[in-house]
Design a protein around this nucleic acid. Structure first.
Ligand code: FES
Ligand code: FES
Lengths: 144, 144
DNA sequence: TTTAAATAGGACAAAAATATCCGAAATAAA
DNA sequence: TTTATTTCGGATATTTTTGTCCTATTTAAA
């Protein structure tokens, strides 16, 4: 569904959001550990998220990553997915035709568009805040 | 969503089904051309589909691929996807946790399962016959 | 001012996915 | 029987994705 990079990105951003809500800035090392992700690869992904203004990075001792509380409420999963995987999730053809086009559809177009739009809608309506709500109380997990 | 191999596989199987309904056996070369797929790679995928009894192959001059008409009606897309991509589409976690588990869910589990099940249901209920119905009359396409 | 801790970013490495090539085997037709 | 056509299957090549390593830079604290 999503690339590994994107999965790590969502998990990392969610963990950063969780910490930020508690007023804590968190380090790459910590993020990788708590999301069970490869450290150096996660670093690359965080650079991308930082460039896309999804997370803020602070260099130097006691530096790390954080997300402004007001942004935790407004950032949607769709922004993270778009920053890492681009728009193929939203516009790609289910059978891999060069372009999805209702005027010249593939045989699964009608059924596929419904599913794709459901996914798109889910990503566009789910905020980072919502992602964190179950985590604090142990209802949901970022690693297994 | 699906791997390239799987996309090619579905397109190829659909084209073979279409030809088989007209009583025609079709060759690799023809399949690759009509589905706009790389010839040699498509050959590999057809071998997989052949081993999984989804298509039948006939060696030698005037050989090629075909699907019994009664099977065109019964084969579901899910069988093709499973033969090529395995079951990750059906059981994988949206955030890449090692296992999707409702008892210890990731933050998107509840929403994701709905989408995943919708996709699963679509694949399990769509037959090859259904895939071909629009093709003959130019309502749907396998290449662009 | 020095040191330690942290991110940034370029270069490199490994693994997986995608794709090609070629000889072997089968088969129908010449 | 020979030839042409076609799939089969192993080896190989290319590209993309995933992942690592190292140095530079920034910053806070000693
Ligand atoms: S054309 Fe294939 S999904 Fe729209
Ligand atoms: S645990 Fe992540 S989708 Fe089920």
């Amino acid at each position: 569904m999503f690339s590994k990079a994107c999965e790590y990105g969502i998990r990392a951003a969610t963990y950063i959001a969780l910490q930020s809500l508690e007023g804590k800035r968190t380090s790459l090392k910590d993020i990788a550990k708590e999301t069970d992700s490869p450290v150096a690869f996660t670093a690359k992904i965080l650079q991308q998220l930082s460039k896309n203004k999804i997370v803020e990075s602070v260099k130097g001792a006691s530096g790390g990553f954080e997300i402004q509380k007001r942004n935790v409420q407004t950032i949607k999963l769709s922004q993270i997915v778009y920053a890492i995987d681009g728009d193929k999730v939203y516009h790609g053809c289910g059978l891999g035709l060069k372009e999805c086009n209702g005027a010249k559809p593939c045989p699964v177009h009608d059924k596929f568009v419904g599913i794709r739009d459901g996914l798109k809608n889910m990503l566009e309506t789910t905020t980072l805040l919502e992602m964190t709500t179950g985590l604090e109380v142990g209802l949901t997990y970022l690693k297994r």
